[in-house]
Structure formats: C-alpha cells, structure tokens
Simulated scan of single mutants.
Amino acid sequence: MKNKEAELREKHEELTSLYEELTASEEELRQQFEELIKQQNLLKISEERFRLSAEGSNDMIWDIDLENGQQYFSDRWYELLGHEIDESENMFDKWLSLIHPDERDYVKKAFEKHLEGNSDFLKCECRMQCKDGSYKWFLIRGKALFDENGKALRIAGSFTDISDRKKYENQLKENAYHDYLTGLPNRLALYENFEKYMNTCHVKTMALFFIDIDNFKFINDTMDHFVGDLLTGLTQII
C-alpha cells in the first residue's frame, strides 16, 4: 500500500512539474507572439512612413540587393521617364542604358567608387532619356550596406528631377557670359575663353581682333532691329 502511495506521489510530482513546464512554455510563447505582433505593427508603420516620405518627396526610390539580384524601382520612376513597367527586365541595366552617353562612364565610376568603399555616399548628376526621346536631369543619391569584410551587400537611394534647376543654372551662366541685348559673348567670356585657348594653343604667333560697337541701342532704335541683327550676324561670321 505504501509503495502504491509513493508511486502515486511520484507520478503527481512529475505531472505537476510537467504542468509547470507547459505553463512556462505557454507564457513564453504568448510573449513571443505579442512581440511578433508588435514587430509587425512597427514594420507596418515603418513601411507606411517610407511610402508617405517617398510620395511626398516626389523622388524616385530604388533598392538593389547585390547578393540575390533583387531590384526595386518605385512607380515614380516610370511616371517621370514615361517608360512602362516590365518586371522581367534588369532595371539596373535598363537605367544605365538610359543615361546620356556623355555621363554614362562618369556615373559608372561613381558607383564603383562607392561600392568599393572609397566614398561615404553615392552622389552624381546625369541626364536620362525619356520615352519620347527627350532628356531630363537627375540627381542620383545612394548609400551601400557593407558586411564586416567590406563587401557591399545592398545599395539603395533616390533619383531627384533637377531639370528646372539645371535650366535656371544654364540661364544664369548665359546671362553672366553674354550681353543681354545682343546675345554675344561679353568681356568675362572673352577673358576666360582666351585664357583657356592660350593654355591649350601650341602656335607661336596669333592675332586678336577686338571690335567694339558703340551706341548699339541707338542703331536698333533708329535703323530698326533688322540692321542690328545684321551687325550681330557679322560678328558670328568673323
């Protein structure tokens, strides 16, 4: 009888211990589940914040996983350039092919420099071809993620349309180096271009013509702009 009681007591203790373990496991699972829900909510908030930021900034967002080749280019990319979405395409190669030939090597070298760890950020400007054949200016910015050995694993960034800014800068340059009335190069343009020419010219003798037209506005006002245009046309021929 005593042996039976001892055996039952031992079984009871085992069941009690097992129950406590199951209760502890259940509590641990509950905490893990709550943490998972919390992380999912944080991820949802983060994704929503990212989406709103991307839409609000009016930039094109891109993300390239250098390990598995996965690429992401936001819809804004297609809106600004006019190209249609084709998920079968390698978007990075597609993007490189759209860069103006004059800037393509420069952009490639900027990417290589950053992915090799020789620059803190990727930042460059280039023209990209739209579907209608025209070009827009873009500021490209990006940042790569590296492993402990310095190998680039991922790179992400944005494209910003700076066409209006470039147009304004070109207009400022035009105004600075050309006469506002005739559109001809002014004295500042002469000084800078002459210095560049002297630094690259290898001839021993040369001549410089300086033609000054006084009262050009008076000519336009009294003899019509047609005569003034003829005079400015002669300067282009000379």
Rank of each mutant, 00 (worst) to 15 (best):
F73M: 06
S25C: 12
L139C: 05
G117Q: 08
C126E: 01
Y19N: 15
W77L: 07
S134L: 00
L115I: 05
T232W: 00
A24W: 05
R51D: 10
W137M: 02
E116S: 13
E125W: 03
D63H: 04
T160I: 01
Y78E: 04
L22D: 00
K11E: 12
I238T: 08
E20V: 12
E169M: 04
D63E: 04
Y197F: 14
G228I: 06
W95V: 01
E21R: 15
D105R: 11
T232R: 08
L98E: 04
S57R: 04
K196P: 02
E103R: 12
S25M: 15
I211W: 03
D65F: 01
H202N: 10
A189W: 02
H225F: 15
I213C: 07
K204V: 05
L81G: 00
R9Q: 10
S57N: 09
R104V: 08
Q71Y: 12
W95A: 02
G150P: 10
D65H: 00
E89Y: 04
L98G: 00
D221V: 12
E48S: 12
C126V: 05
E10P: 01
E13Y: 08
H114L: 13
F73Q: 02
E21D: 15
Y106R: 13
R127A: 09
D164E: 11
E48C: 13
K38V: 08
Q40I: 15
T222L: 10
R141C: 04
R154T: 03
M206L: 12
E148Q: 14
L172K: 09
N220R: 08
S74V: 04
I61H: 01
G82Y: 07
G133D: 05
N90S: 08
F159Y: 03
